[in-house]
Every structure is written in C-alpha cells, then in structure tokens.
Design a protein around this nucleic acid. Sequence first.
RNA 1: GCCCGAGUGGCGGAACUGGCAGACGCGCUAGCUUCAGGAGCUAGUGAUCGCAAGGUCGUGGAGGUUCGAGUCCUCUCUCGGGCACCA
Length: 837
Amino acid sequence: MADYNPQEIEAKWQKRWEEARVFETEADPSKPKYYTLEMLPYPSGTMHMGHMRNYAIGDVVARVKRMRGFNVLHPMGWDAFGLPAENAAIKNNTHPRVWTNNNIGEFQRTLRRFGFSYDWRREISTCEPEYYRWNQWFFQRMLERGLAYRKKSRVNWCPKCCTVLANEQVINGGYCWRHEDTLVESRELEQWFLKITAYSDQLVDDLKQLEGTWPERVITMQRNWIGRSQGARVKFEIADLSSVKPIEIFTTRIDTTYGATAIILAPTHPLVTRLLQGSPVREQAEPQLARMRQTSVKTADLVTAEKVGFFTGRHATNPFSGEKIPIWVGNFVLMEYGTGAIMAVPAHDQRDFEFCRKYGLPIRVVIQPSSGEPLVEEKMTVAFDEHQNGRLVNSGPFNGLSPDEAIAKMTAFAEKKDFGRGEVVFRLRDWGISRQRYWGTPIPVVYCPDHGLQAVPDKDLPVLLPPNPNLTGEGESPLASTPEFVNTTCPKCGGQARRETDTMDTFVDSSWYFYRYCDPHNDKAPFDSTKVAYWFPIDQYIGGITHAILHLLYSRFWCKVMRDLGLVNHNEPISRLFTQGMVLKGGVAMSKNRGNVVGAIDMAEKYGADTGRLYTLFAAPPEKDLEWNEEGIEGSWRFLNRVFRLVDKHAGAIRATRNWNFDSKGMTDKERDLIRVAYQTMQRVTQDFETRWHFNSAIAQIMELTNEIYLAEPLENGVRPEIRKEVLQILTLLLAPMTPHIAEEMWEMLGNTDGLWNAPWPILANEQLELAKDNEVEIPVQVNGRVRATLKVPADANELDVVAKAKAEPAVARHIDGKRIVKQIYVPDKLLNLVVQ
RNA sequence: GCCCGAGUGGCGGAACUGGCAGACGCGCUAGCUUCAGGAGCUAGUGAUCGCAAGGUCGUGGAGGUUCGAGUCCUCUCUCGGGCACCA
C-alpha cells in the first residue's frame, strides 16, 4: 500500500515529460492545428492562485485538444518591460533588468512546478533586444506609412508614474490606471502617436465577426470605446463678422436644427478669441474664458461640474431658417470631440436644456411626440430626446416628417445647398505611445540639426537601451541624461545628432507577441509568414476582463496594420476569447499591494500542484470570480487521496490484465451498473470540457463516479478484472487534463507502459454506447403538477403501461379517486402528469 | 444618466433544448475506528407542521404564459462591472 505523495509523483512526471519532449510542437500542415494561450504575465513579485487559476484553465484546454489529436501550440512568455521594474530598481538601488529577470526566474519555476504543458523552447521576454528590435522595426514601417507621427498636443500625465498615459490608461473619468487615487494632469507635449483612428471603421465593423466567440461585454466595451456616431456637420455663418469663416458644428440630430436657439463653442475653440475681439461684452467675457480654460484641465471634475457659459456678443445664422441665434461658450462642450462646437437644441437634448434654462435662452419644440400629451415649452422639465416617436413641427418644409426621414432629407438638403454634409465621428483617439521612462523600447529616431527627424535605418536596429542609466523616477526620460545614448550621428549626413529619448508604451510589446511565438528565434524578420499562416488565427485566448479595451483593441489594430504590410492574411488575430474570473480573498482581487495573496508555490508545497489545479477548477465555473477558501482545498486534497487509494488497492491484481474487449455476454448486474456509470460519466465530462467549459461540474461527475465505485466495493466480489481495469482507466483518463501528474502515475500503476500523454481521449465505440444506455428509468408521476410517486419502468416503456402502473400507486390513487382526469401529459422516459378536476 | 452581467440552503455552486430544485464539495450533527489528536469509514443535513405516515412553503420581489417555470414574457428591487457633459 502506497500513500499518495504528490511531491514525488509530480517531480517524476515533469521530468519524464521533459525528456520525452511531449509539449514541443512544430508547424505541420498534415495535422489539424490548435493555437491556445493565456495572456502573458507581467512578472512582478511572486505568482499567486489568481495567476494559477488562469493557467490551470488554459492547460485543461491544451491537454484536452492534444488528447483529441490536435497539433497544439501552447506557449508562455513575459511582458517584461514596464514601470514597476523601474520603480523597484530605484527603490532597491539595482537595475530593472536584474529585478525583472529575478521575477521571471521565480515565475518560471512556479509554472514548471505546476506542470503546465508549455513548449518552453518558444519562451519570449519582451525586454530582450531580440524581441524589442521588432517593435522598432514595426515602428519604422508605420512611420513610412504615416501611421506613426509626432505632434504637440494636450496629453494625460500621471504625476506618480512621471509619464504620459494613453487615453485607454485613464480610468474613472480622469484617474491613472495604475494609481487609482491619482488624478491625471493635462500637459502640452510633443508626443509620438500611432494612428489607430485610421482603422476606426474596421475596428468597429470587424467586431461583427467576433460575435458569438468573444464575450458580448468585451465587444460592447470596444464598440463604446470606439464610439462611432453617424451625424452631420453643419455650417453656421457668423452674422456680425462676414470676414470670418463660418462655425462648423457636429450633430447627430440634424432633424432638430429648427429648434436650435444658440451655438455653443468649447472654451478652447480657436474661434473664441477672434469673436471676442471688438465684441461689446469683451470686458466681462475674457476673465470668464480664462477661468474656464483653467478648470477644464481636470477632466475628472467635468463630469460633476455644473454647466457654465457666457455670451460672446456675436450671432450666427441658422442655415435652414435664416434665424439669428447667439453664440455662447460653454464648459460642457469638448474641443476633442466632433468640431468643438454644437448647436444647442434645448427642447430635445438634456444638456442643452439645462444650459438654456439656466441662462434664460429660449426653448423651442420642433418634434412633437406621436402619442401622449403634446409638449408645451413653458411646462417642460426635461428635454424630449426620443427619436423613434415623433413628428417634426415648426420646421418649415420638413414639417410632418419622422425624425429619421428628416435626418435623411435635411442632410441631403444641406449637401445640395453646400452648408453641410453627413459625417461619421469617432470617440477613439490616436494611441499616444511616448513614455518618459527608461524601461521600455527606445523609439528609433534621431533629430539632426540639418535634416530634422530621421528614422534609424533597419540595418542599425535595434537601438539598444544604455546599460547604465541614471534612474531618478522624476522629470524627463532617464535616457535624456545619458549622454552616450543621446549623442549620435545623423543617418543621412553623419553629422552630430540627438536621439529620441522617450520609450514606447509597453502595450506595444503585447500587441503582437503571440505572433512571435510562432517563430521566436527569427533574426531576419519578426516572424516567418508561412509559420504564422499555419498557426493563426489564435483558436483560444484566455485572460482577464481588465484587458477588454487596452490590449485587445491594440492587438486588433496591430493585426490590421500587419495585414496591410502583407505579413499576415487574416483580419482578426483571435478567433475565440475567454475571460476568466478573478480569485478573491476577503472580497477583493488578490494583489501584492493589498497583502491578500495566497502564494502558488506555497500551495504546491503544501498539497501538490494537482490539488491546487483541481481546486481552482472545481470551486467555481471559470468565468466567475472565486472567493479563496482554505477549507475548500482540503476537499480536493481528500478526493485525490481517495482516488489514489482506490487505484492503489486494485492495481496489483489487474496490472497484467488485458484490456476489456467490450463483450457484454454473461455480465453481472454489478458489472453492468459500474460500466454504465463510467461510460455515462465519460460522455458528460467530454461535453463539459469541449462545448460548455463547465470544469466544475465535470469534476463533480468524476467525484460521483468515484463514489459509485466505492459503493460497489469490494469490487473483487462479482466484477471481473478486465472490467475493474476498464472502469479505473476511464476514471484516470478523465482526470488527466486537470490533474495530469496523479493521472500519469495511476495510468502506470494500472499496467500501462506507454505514458498517458500518448493516450487519446476516449471516444466510445458502438458497443460501449449500447452499454451506456439506461435500461430502466425512474419517472416521476405528478397529479396537477405535484409529484406523488416515482415509478421504475423499462426505458422506452409505452404510455398505456406507465399510466396503468401509475394509477395503481396508492399515493397517486389517493389524489385521483373520485375525480375526473381531464388531461394526461406523458413525456417518454421523463415524466407523467395527470391533471384532474 | 446610458450599456452590460448577476441574484438558488450556513457557504462555494449543480440543474443540457421549460419536466423530481439544491447534484458535487465545504461546513455541521451522530455513530464506528483511535490512548489521544489527525486521518478514514457509515448515516443525516432547504424551511416548516407532525410521534409517524404524510402535508405545506421554497430559486431577490410582484404579476403573466403553461398540464408544468430557477429557466420564457412584463414590471420592479438589490448588488457587481463598463462608459460617461461624446452633441
């Protein structure tokens, strides 16, 4: 009798897998491929059970597919650049590379300890020049095509990170994504941008391809983030200043133009200063403008701030009606969106309504609801902004049209008269990638006093990070104070030149890393396109919902750029996305900062990797958050011990037994029952793995099978050896994707000399399917929907027999005696319901 | 404000297309075993009335459809998440 010793067993099989190179894969067009991966981790601190759950889910997928005969690519790597490494290095007076590589070592050791089936030869680390040189190479391609450009603009600056953030990294209306309590400031800086907006339309349209295979909420979040709105641009001439060009406004409701009672400009609109020149209200207006421009810096406050504004003293002409309406400046109009100017239609837009009420501007109804009380201006308390329901009024020749008809007709009219046109506007902004920090990919350009901006030629890539930077964590990029980095020569004239000292956002690294796994050691190109063509698109991607916008949007963008460069031939990189839940402790996500982590290595040492894997899969369905419970893991540990004891007890006697040939002649009832349960469990578990991803209920089924076998003990009594072996082997195979080490060990104990890694996933033969069928079923008998008895009848019993038998049941008879049966519902093998009066 | 998602025992969670609600596990109770602790094994465990047989209630709440609803429809409450003066 041996005890279950996970430490020994796990080390033994990890070594065997490595020696047999079980998880190493090559592209092979003769086999069906399956590319699955989990989002690459940022190696900070140590791994906790939250990480582990993610990889456990991914490993089940990879192992099941492998057993199903797919050529499976399952790689792992490190998102190794980033601020925490730099900050930690400053704090501990070391180099970011040292800190990062220590962590990578720790992470790698932990992942190996858990026996995840990665092809480690393909491991990548984004902070290595072999990797980041291709970031630079891509940057040059984008620069050539105008997709990378430099401009001075207002950008988000995090005072704690001491760097610029992308719009996607600003959360909760103005806070840093890493420092959730730190307000982002607005600064005017020269920055590098990637022109993701060139792909706005495609990024929205192609979301349709992902419907059904990506979580709906990720698609919705991306759609909202890109924020495409169909509308129109309309010109309003400035009545008092004919020499100044007309004001252009953007609206999605051109049908309400007759109801416009003011034009409102953003405080930073370039026209504002010109309008105030010589204006009768200039004296009062200018201080207000100054105040507004100042307060607009804090974007977070905008949300709650009250609407304020002032009159410019000028008027504009409504191109439809010819009416003169006042031009105002309002703090709620954003320069960044649309044209930075709007027409205020207080009757049909809530914001305009509030603004106009406050400043006594008139309200004019131009859409009357088709049903209910007609609107009366003086009595309105909110704007009427529906456009499904209503008809135009007070709108000249457009009266009587529905808003949708009016939008089409009025846009056409504006185009004909040349004062407006239909336009699509996006919320998405270009991706600001400049970061004023050291630990990232250097942006590969130089500035020559004579030739200006020059790209570093491909042959000179990579532009390496200097080994000994001067890290302070303050002010401008550390690269700027590293003379041996900054001072260089112009690639055009060879004269003195200065390098760009900003580095790239680390989201550049993760935008294409999964392509590199296909060809990780290529030193001629980012990857060989034929290899990528074999593996891509990714069949299954697994990660947290936190990346719903950032990483997953950038990756989609990058894919489209690569397609246009002729490097890949697909539109979307990821066919199927799964977003798993977090592991919580005390109701919040595990994180080092909060000090509520359960270390993965600690768990492996205490219970073994298999128990840790099993528990994270069993405790909750994978998409849900999981509250960590130390008592729960004990249950998984007990279960594995129970299974191990069972196999250990029988192994000696059946080790040499030949596999059963499914001959059902002369089977005892006990044998039949056991085999049936085993095969039924197989069918259900297969379903749970393949189509439903219900790992938790798959495990519950396997536990039930184990309980059934225990109840049938002693098996030696009436169960022949080959059937004992069949049942125990099925139990072992079903566990293999989740708890691979103990499964291998038991497989060997049962007399198999060929590793379990070579075993195919069991698919039931016809004889087995026959044996899996129930020959007797239990049918609940209801009277008026209440269960009164349960009948045991043969499968496929006919209705008359069942009804007769049911009526004979005393508990049924009691409820139908003296009453009339008005209806009889019989669902074969399911239930019988008698409706009486 | 807008858009998603979720509400089932003491707890984590099952329930495929409407068909015995609470599988499986944790915890708890009792018994066996043990010097003891631990482990293991067996039985029980939604609430409620009843000595029992048996009955009634029960999936956040209120209605509805149906022979039958956790599941479908309408309204509503609570929690979680995302976006947010986006014109």
